[in-house]
């Protein structure tokens, strides 16, 4: 599924999800070289560095919540999970966004994800 893709992982992302990425053919790289940026915590210093980068300001760096990978792992058709639902905006904007649209999709999935995790 991720053959030939380079992923950067914030230290907030669990080892399980990194291993899944690699098992699916992805490689792990630094933020500069990566074409996928994953985090589980927008306020983690690693991820904050992305939001402070020129790449982010110039619309070239969207961080995605790493639970996209758990969603892919549990989906019947792996390629059917829309990556766009897992946008992770900077922590300082999340309150305002939540007020306008309710909880993020990755927040709604949380319950389902923990359930899934318990089974493993």
């Amino acid at each position: 599924m991720f053959q030939g893709q380079r992923g950067w992982f914030c230290r907030s992302v669990s080892q399980d999800l990194r291993q899944f990425w690699v098992a699916e053919g992805g490689t792990i790289s630094d933020a500069q070289a990566a074409n996928f940026l994953f985090s589980c915590d927008a306020s983690h210093p690693d991820t904050m560095r992305i939001y402070q980068s020129l790449d982010y300001i110039e619309d070239n760096a969207t961080v995605f919540h790493a639970c996209y990978l758990s969603a892919v792992a549990s989906a019947e058709i792996k390629s059917s999970v829309p990556l766009g639902h897992f946008m992770l905006p900077p922590a300082c904007l999340q309150k305002e966004i939540r007020r306008k649209i309710g909880s993020f999709i990755w927040e709604q999935d949380q319950h389902f994800l923990t359930e899934k995790h318990d089974e493993v």
Partner: peptide, 22 residues
Amino acid sequence: RCSGCIAVGQSLNSRNFSNLLH
């Protein structure tokens, strides 16, 4: 019809997603 919602597959990533949405 929202590109951010329907787009799936490897062509989409952290580098081009913002432009796609815009």
